[in-house]
Simulated scan of single mutants.
Amino acid sequence: MAAPGVMASVFIGSALLYGWDAPAAVTALVTAMVAVLLALLAVTFFWKVSVHSAVASGALAILVTVFGPWMLALVPVVVLIGWSRVRLRCHTVGQVAVGMLIGAAVSAPLYMLLG
């Protein structure tokens, strides 16, 4: 699916969550991840970043926010996802690192604000 189709799907799904009065934690999660996607979209106009790494680190940051620091035990999973993107030659180490930073930096604060 092309990028416009993905974004349309995300926005329609988000509207349905709000329209059907989904739990606050779920709408906060989806809103935080949409914000990550928008931040990635803004950067990607100028430089390619790893969406896979951003989503993995963003999800982990929210898990740490909700369940506490013991969830940091999942950091190796995020690192493996980043390593796979470099190994597959889809991204450079820098693109993976920036993706991870954007994912965590955008998702966790927004989730805490909305959740």
Rank of each mutant, 00 (worst) to 15 (best):
W47G: 13
T65G: 11
S84T: 12
R85W: 08
V30I: 07
L38Y: 12
F46N: 03
G58C: 10
V55S: 11
G68P: 10
A54H: 07
S53P: 04
P76D: 00
V43S: 11
V30K: 01
V79Y: 05
F45Q: 13
H52P: 13
F45D: 01
L63Q: 05
F67W: 14
I62W: 02
K48Y: 02
S84Q: 08
R85T: 08
V43G: 05
V34T: 14
A32R: 00
A35M: 08
V66N: 02
H52N: 10
L63D: 00
L60Y: 11
L29S: 09
R85D: 01
W70G: 13
I62D: 03
V78A: 12
L74T: 11
V30C: 10
L80H: 08
M33W: 04
V49K: 09
S57A: 15
V55D: 02
L60A: 11
W70A: 15
M33N: 04
K48D: 09
A61E: 00
P76V: 07
A32N: 02
A39Q: 06
L74I: 10
A59V: 15
A39R: 12
V79G: 02
F67S: 14
A54R: 06
S53A: 15
A35Y: 09
F67Q: 12
M33L: 15
G58D: 04
S84K: 11
A39H: 03
L80A: 15
A32T: 03
K48C: 13
H52W: 12
G68S: 09
W47M: 06
W47I: 12
S57R: 00
M33S: 08
S53N: 09
G68C: 13
M33K: 01
V78S: 04
L38R: 07
M71K: 04
L72E: 00
V79R: 02
F46S: 12
L29W: 05
V78M: 07
A39C: 14
V78C: 13
L72H: 06
A32C: 08
V49C: 14
G58T: 00
V51F: 09
W83I: 15
V34W: 10
V86L: 08
A35S: 11
A59G: 15
W83M: 10
W70P: 09
T44R: 03
T65V: 14
H52I: 04
T44G: 14
L74N: 03
A59M: 14
W47H: 13
A39K: 11
V86C: 10
S84E: 06
L63R: 00
A73D: 02
L72C: 09
V79N: 01
A39I: 06
V36G: 07
I62T: 00
I81T: 13
T31V: 04
V51M: 09
L38W: 05
I81V: 15
F45L: 15
A73C: 15
G82H: 04
L38K: 06
L60S: 08
V75P: 05
L60I: 14
V79Q: 00
V30M: 02
L38A: 13
V30W: 10
V79W: 02
T31G: 14
V75D: 00
K48G: 14
V55F: 12
V78D: 04
F45I: 15
G58Y: 03
V51D: 01
V75R: 06
W83C: 08
L41I: 07
R85A: 05
I81M: 04
V66C: 08
W83G: 01
A56F: 11
I81N: 07
V64K: 01
V66R: 05
V64Y: 06
